[in-house]
Structure formats: C-alpha cells, structure tokens
Write a protein that binds this DNA or RNA. Structure first.
Lengths: 216, 216, 216, 216
DNA sequence: TATGAATGAGCTTTCATTCAT
DNA sequence: AATGAATGAAAGCTCATTCAT
C-alpha cells in the first residue's frame, strides 16, 4: 500500500481533449467492473467479454471505445486503486508525530486499508504481477519510496539504527503486500494481530542499538 | 525459496510406463525452453508456439506429445526448479548448528540460489503467481513451513523471543521472494549486502528480549 | 420423416436476450451453409472451415461468435430441418380421415418431403447417425412414435390386424428413411412409384385378416 | 446383413507380394481391436491411438505399417465382418427349399447373426454410415441383391405377388438393418419376437393375391 | 455515444502419417 | 518386424479490436 504518481497518469494529457462528464462516468463504471472481474476470476480470465457482462454493457466494443486498449484499461484500474490508497494514507498520516509513530501508523493504516478494500487490492496485485502495467523501471522505487522516507527520517532524527533504508523498506513493504495472498489462504486471518506483530517486529528491527551512539 | 514435495510429482506414477532416455531428454529440453520463454516474455505470452520456437521444435504438437497439457508442462517446470532449490538448500543447511545460524544460513543460501538462478526463479514466480499450479489452498503454508520451523525451533530453544511464527515467517520469506523483482528493477543490486542487511535485521527482530526471561 | 419437439430448442431461452434480425439472418445463413456442407462432404468433413468457406465468411470465428459450439450449430441444423418437416407434415395430415388413409398419406407425404428436400434430409441423417445430437435415449422412440400412433389407432378401430406396433412402425419408418440413401445411389429413382409400392405393401401388411375377426 | 464382394478386396492384388503368416496375424489382431474400439467409442473416436492401445501395440506406427491408411484398415474391418456374414448366411441358406422358406430363413438368419455379433455389426454400421468405405455407387445395389434375388425367384415361381423387387428388398433389408440401432435403444429387445413379426409381415406383404392369377 | 457485427490472429490439442533405428 | 519419436496439418474456440450504423 503506497501512494505514487501513477494515478496521475489517468489525468490530462497534452494532445487530448478533456473528457466529458458522461465519458468519465462510463470509464468509472468500466473500471469498477474490471476490478470486480479481476478480483473474481483473476487477470487471465478477465476478458473484455467478462468485464462487459459484469458492467451490463452490451458490447465489448464500448470498452475499446473508451480505452485505447487493454493496457490503458489496466492502467486506469491500477490508477484508481492507487488513488484510493493515496487519499486514505494521506489522511491517516497527517496527525503523525515522529518517525516511530509514523512507521507504526503506516503499517497499521496500510493493513487497515487492505482489509477494507480486499477486492481492489486483489485486482491491483493481479495487474502488477501479470506485468499488465508497463510502469517503468522505477516501479519498485516508487513502491518503496514512502516507507524509505519514513525510515530515513528516523535515521536522521537518531531514532533508528543505521541500515540500508531500501532493504528495510523492502522488508516492511513486502510484509504488508503479503496480506492479500495471506487472506486468500486464511480468510479469517486476524489482521489486527498481524499488524501488532509487524509493528513490534519492525520496532525491534529499526531501534537504535546501544552500541550505535558510542561506537559510531 | 523453499523445498516442497511438488518436485516428486515428476517421478514415477503407477499406471504409467517408465520414460525413455530420449523422452527424458526431450522433456528436459522443452522444460528448459519453457523456463527461458517464461522468464523472457512472462507467463501469458509463453505460448506453446513460442516455447517450441525457442526449443527448435518443428511443431507445437511435439510439446503436446510429451506433456499431457499445458498444466503438466508448467508443473514440470515448477517441479524442476523446486527440485533444484531443494537439492541446493538441503546441501547448504546440513552443517548448520543452532537456530540462529540456521536462520542466517537459510537467508544467505536462499538469496545465493536466486542470484545463481535468476531465470529459473523468475519462471517459477510467474507460474505461481498466475495460478498455473493447482497446488492446494495450503500453498502459502507450504511456502512458509521451512522458515516457520526454524523460528519455532529457536523459540523452543529459548534463543528467539516470543512472536507468532507465521507472521515472522511471512516477513522473512517475503523479503527473500522480493529479490527476483528487485533484480528486475536493479540488475546490479549487490545481493551480498542485501543478504547482510537481512541477516542483521532478522537477528534483531527475533532476538530474545531482556524482559522475556523475567516477565514470562 | 417425423416431427418432434427438438425444433423448439431453437426458440427463446430464459436467461438469453432476444436475437437481432441481422443475427437471425446470419445464423440462418450459417445453418444453410452447414446443411450444404454436410450434405456434400458428410458430417466428419464438415469442419467450421468448410462451412465458413461455403457461407462466404471471413473466419471460422464468426461461427463460434453466433453459435456456442459445434453441438449448438448441429442442433440448430437439426431443429431447422425438423421444423420444416413438422410444418409440412402437420399441414398434409390435417384432412386425413381414418387410419388407412392416414398411413397412406403419411408415407406419401414423408417421401414427398424427402424428394423436395434432399440435401436437408441428408444433413439431418448424417447428424443423427453421428450422434451429434445429444437427444436422449428415446431417440428411436420419438422417431417411431407418429407411425406407431397411426398403427395403434388402426388396430383400435378394427381396421388393422393384430401385430406389434413397434415392429411395424420400424418397418415403415425405415423404408421411408431409406430414401435419401437410395437417392444417393439412384439419383433418378422414381419416388412416386416407390411411394405407390410402399403404400400397397403396407396396406397388405396391416390389413385385417379373414381369421382375425373369427379366431380372436 | 448381406454377402458382397467387398470382402474380396482384402485378398491378393496384382502388384503386391503375398503376406507372411505373422503379417496376417498382426492384421487380424489390429482388425479385431478396431472392431472393439469402434463398437465401444464410435467411428469418430476410434483413433489409431485408441485402437493401438486396445490391441496392446506400443505404437500407432505399427498400424500404419500394416495398413496403407485408415481407409484400408476400415475396408479390412468391413471385409472381415462381411466375410463372417457371408459364411454364416451361406451355411444357413443351404437347406432351404422354395422362395417362401428362403425369405423366412433369410430374415431369421440375418437377425440371428446380428444378435450373435452385436459388436461386429455395430462397427460395420458405423463404418458404412461414416462413409469410411469408398465403396462405389452400387453399394445399395450390392446390399439389396440377395433379398432381391429371393423375391424375384418367388415371383418367377408364382408364389409372390407382383411388385417392384427393389422396393420390397429395401423394405425388408432396412427392417433387418434397423436391429443394431434398436438394440442400442432397447438392449433387452426380444429378437425372436421381432423376427416372428417380420416374417409374418413380409409373408403378408409378398403373398400372391387372389386377383393376381385372374387379372393378369 | 453506443451497439451489434465482424475480423483475423492466436490459442491448445488431436490426429494420421513418416522415419530412423 | 517393430518401436519410439517426430511431423505438420487441421480442428474448435477465444480474444482484443475495428467498423458501419
């Protein structure tokens, strides 16, 4: 769970005229149906025909009409979900004071979001894993940036020990990303406990060590 | 990186006559071509036609001739890779003494294997993520079992703190699984450093806490 | 030649939206091409490719587009022909008075229909004999029912002798069904004479015997 | 059920060297397996692979080795069954005296043969109906010849009424041919009764009429 | 703006046949 | 005489996309 600039890709492009209200509504409807379809059938089975059926559209042609291709549709879906995440996370991270609390809040908020948006997350995961997004070479970078920043801030403030922030960001982000798959396996997983364990784990893993202040 | 019993599926079945030497060679050749193809194009684009082309076969019919269907081919690919992992890991884990060293060795060996078998790992990942293996609902369980056992052994021995072993197993295994994707993004990633950081992180995250002995 | 309820299968189904005019036309065109193809090449060689070629379609995909599968197409073909038969026979059997006349009319009308629809009958025959219709275990029963009923009515009215109506129905219906194959062998067969001979034969075979009234 | 010259096709051809004993045995084995397969699965599913499996052969190549093609195999199967019929019928028809008895014997013997060789008859039927035999335009003629001859002899002897012998031959032969299909529908059909009914029916249908002697 | 229709490339799979050994 | 291996054509079917209306 992370906020990136991918969502912005759905917005205005230079050579393209603005979208009408109706157009936006249709696109939203199709995106919603795509999320539902992907979450239900998986990426591979999510054909235009299935999506159209779920959206109550009479023809797959309408999807092609509104989206330049399957790639653009998938980009729109990803953008939509990522937008939701960004909005939610921005809101939740606002009242945070200090890196330690920021990390804890980030973990809890991320898992909370996943719990509340299982279908959207499943769809996003499917899209990402199937390489349906041609999102550039810095995808990983983007994904890890929010956590990395928290971690680096904590190091700068002397609250966290020395470590490669990219590595720890990976550890943390992957532990969060694992939730949708875990939920698929254990639908009754207690996410609150899971979050608690993660928070404890990452607190221990990032805490400044006794030796840190002296030795370095 | 983990060892399971899926690899055994490639072995003798009751009602089936033994495979010829040549047949085994062809199957191996096809499996190799499949790995190459999947790693290069992704699971979805890895059609029989592409695989046949890469294997230098004259027709896709030959693949169907040697494998009962696409599912069986993918199972063979997964089995092959998992077999490699199992062999390698078994070897590396043998001289280990104690849970802490076991955990460190597991992490380093896993990442080492991934580094040495990038294409195979990518292919395995693609297959797993695309649900091309009908391996049951306990896939996640199987995946996490080896690490879980190390962790529980460490707890039993009093070397590790109290935690939910499933959660920490997830954290650790996911950090390892992230490597293929990280490599796709940063081909020059220094895996030795990455492994070092992970080892340190997990040592801190699992270490028995001062309070542990007293409070419990 | 017989009328069944199979024809109705082509009509409205609950969960399916009504068919367009154009769609109906295409389906009819494809069915016609299928009849032509089957009559010409036989069921086995009547591939979608051949049918598409004969229908002037650009791809076999269009057939799949309009019919759920080969089975549905064959059902449509059979339904079409059976519908024709039913309509024709119903019309011709209307003015009939008495079992003897009914039998004669049935024979003449059946053969007349076959004469006028050689290709359709050949196609129907091919489909039935190839088991391309999953119509139940009582196929034979359905086929023989119309004649059986005429025969039993004749026995009840005291006009026909005692016999197993299923056996005589078989004799009569098979003699009629033989026509398409006969025509294949003797294209110039005089069907009117053939019908005359059959009528005489079946009159003699069914006529009440002198002994019947007394002995039984 | 009828005896033709098709069986002879399996015999010596000018430019071909004689078959060895082993070769003949293999051919017979394959033909037997083909009969079994066709009777069980139908013509369409009776692939070389299925036939080879049933014959205990290790490769379909062996079938191609012994038969010039699928057509020749089918011809051999048909020839084999027809040969059986011919032998059986010749034997049974020998002691017959007079056309009326000949007709009765022909019907009973034919149905008896079918009852005793269901699988062979089913296979023959499948082959004929699928046009797998390129047997010429006079197939029908051949089929009907034996009965026709009996009928014409009866007419010549003044025992049968005047009729087109081809038509009555068709009626009779088709009634006999119907048995395999009837058996498929009613496995418990009482063939003795069926034969009795046919004999009575055809006796009435062929009997010289009172008017015959005078009017002509 | 939306629809039904049509397209053509692609898919996996089956099959009879050929061939070297 | 027989085998396992390989071939390539054909099959039915699905798919994203295009297009006229």
């Amino acid at each position: 769970v992370r906020a990136t600039s991918v969502g912005a890709a759905a917005e205005a492009e230079p050579g393209r005229r603005a979208r009408t209200f109706i157009e936006d509504a249709r696109r939203a409807q199709i995106v919603a149906a795509a999320i539902e379809t992907i979450a239900e059938l998986g990426y591979r089975q999510a054909s235009f025909a299935q999506i159209a059926r779920r959206a109550g559209l009479s023809s797959t042609g309408l999807i092609s009409y509104h989206f330049a291709g399957k790639a653009e549709l998938m980009q729109a879906v990803a953008g939509q979900v990522i937008g939701l995440i960004a909005a939610d996370m921005t809101e939740r991270m606002r009242p945070v004071a200090g890196p330690a609390q920021a990390l804890e809040t980030y973990v809890r908020a991320s898992i909370g979001f996943i719990a509340a948006h299982r279908r959207e997350m499943t769809a996003l995961l499917e899209i990402l894993l199937n390489g349906a997004l041609d999102y550039g070479p810095d995808a990983e970078l983007v994904t890890l940036t929010p956590v990395s920043e928290i971690l680096r801030a904590g190091q700068a403030a002397g609250e966290f020990r020395e470590f490669d922030s990219r590595v720890l960001a990976t550890v943390i982000q992957r532990s969060i990303d694992a939730v949708p798959l875990l939920l698929a396996t254990y639908p009754d997983l207690d996410l609150a406990s899971y979050a608690d364990e993660l928070v404890t784990t990452f607190r221990l893993a990032t805490a400044r060590q006794p030796a840190d202040g002296a030795a370095r």
